[in-house]
Design a protein around this nucleic acid. Structure first.
Lengths: 190, 190
DNA sequence: ACTCTAGCGGAGGCACACCTCCGCTTCAAG
DNA sequence: CTTGAAGCGGAGGTGTGCCTCCGCTAGAGT
């Protein structure tokens, strides 16, 4: 299994020790900020929370998009890795387990909806990676007669992304709603 | 059937002819802006598009929240009205028709997710109105054995709001995904 | 027609985010 | 240890949005 996204984005991490630490701190802070405030979180705030100067942020990530892409690519890579892990489970079980990870790792929830429609090269590569990783899980479930055939994997991802990005009273409600929607994915196969 | 929301908010519309026209233009522009840019659209931009000075906006709606509440309340009122219209249809048909209107009228889609969790008095009143209008449709579908009983109306609204607020490739995809999720709402009742 | 007041609009002060630039710091190679 | 260059940070210029304030305009009642 290959991880093209990692190759496209990863090499920017600097070599010097302090610089690498700053780079990581920035990514962490950015992940949190994007999760909390969406894709237009304040860059100065991110630098502040990372404990570095604003100049350092701009040296590592010349544009907002560069930063966001890096955060996003990290999460996509993680998802690709998980897709391999669940390969041993039963078809439907494998799919839903992966989807649950999808909702967990996509911490940048609010921003993901926009990213799903972004046309840029990197995002396109990310989506393709994700489809390559998760798509087979869905097709396997379809072939096993567990998932309906009148939808595609992209439909499924949008559905889950939409539900995930919404505010719920609590996690239990989110899980309940997600499970119900997934029942719809399975319904006609029964 | 009563419409408490309308009573709470509506009386602010000014009496003088030009003033009333400005008020309406502001609401229209705001509806569009909130739909396009979410709840933190630029107020100066809204005033510009409405063709009035920024001062006029602030006189009518002293805070951003006042403006947003008014737009939101309008849409909720409209939804309440529609709930009455569909009362004659078959239970499941009535519910899904209303939900489709829900996705249409909620033009302020991006912002609705946040509003669904807002604690303020007005938003609470709006939600209650909406629950009062749509809830019976759902309960009727449940009693007819068409909708599953292990979820409540609020779960359903969140599900639909989440899917509606997400970006799709086209309307057909949105409808398809929504229909699949609604299959999940109906699944166990079959 | 006259008036008087509700309503208008936008200039301007404030706050904050974006991004550049450059003198200072610190790593790490020799 | 020395040294040079990679990296740092934040001051400051620019833009944009928020909101107030007040001199002017025009609708509505007489």
């Amino acid at each position: 299994m290959t991880f093209p996204v990692g190759e496209i984005v990863a090499s920017r991490r600097p070599h010097r020790k302090d610089a690498a630490r700053n780079y990581d701190a920035l990514l962490d802070a950015a992940r949190e900020a994007f999760a909390a405030h969406g894709a237009d979180a304040s860059l100065e705030d991110i630098a502040r929370r990372a404990g570095v100067g604003i100049g350092t942020l701009y040296r590592n990530f010349p544009t907002r998009r560069d930063l966001f892409e890096s955060v996003y690519a990290d999460e996509v890579n993680e998802l690709c890795r998980v897709a391999g892990e669940v390969a041993g489970l039963e078809p439907w079980e494998a799919l839903t387990t992966w989807l649950r990870r999808f909702t967990d790792y996509m911490v940048t929830k609010r921003a993901v909806r926009e990213a799903l429609n972004d046309e840029s090269e990197i995002f396109q590569a990310c989506r393709e990676s994700m489809y390559a990783a998760g798509g087979p899980l869905f097709e396997r479930a379809q072939e096993a007669g567990e998932a309906r055939r009148d939808m595609d994997f992209i439909d499924l991802l949008r559905m889950v992304a939409g539900i995930t990005a919404t505010a719920f009273d609590d996690d239990a409600q989110r899980d309940r709603v997600l499970a119900i929607a997934l029942d719809g994915v399975r319904a006609t196969a029964r």
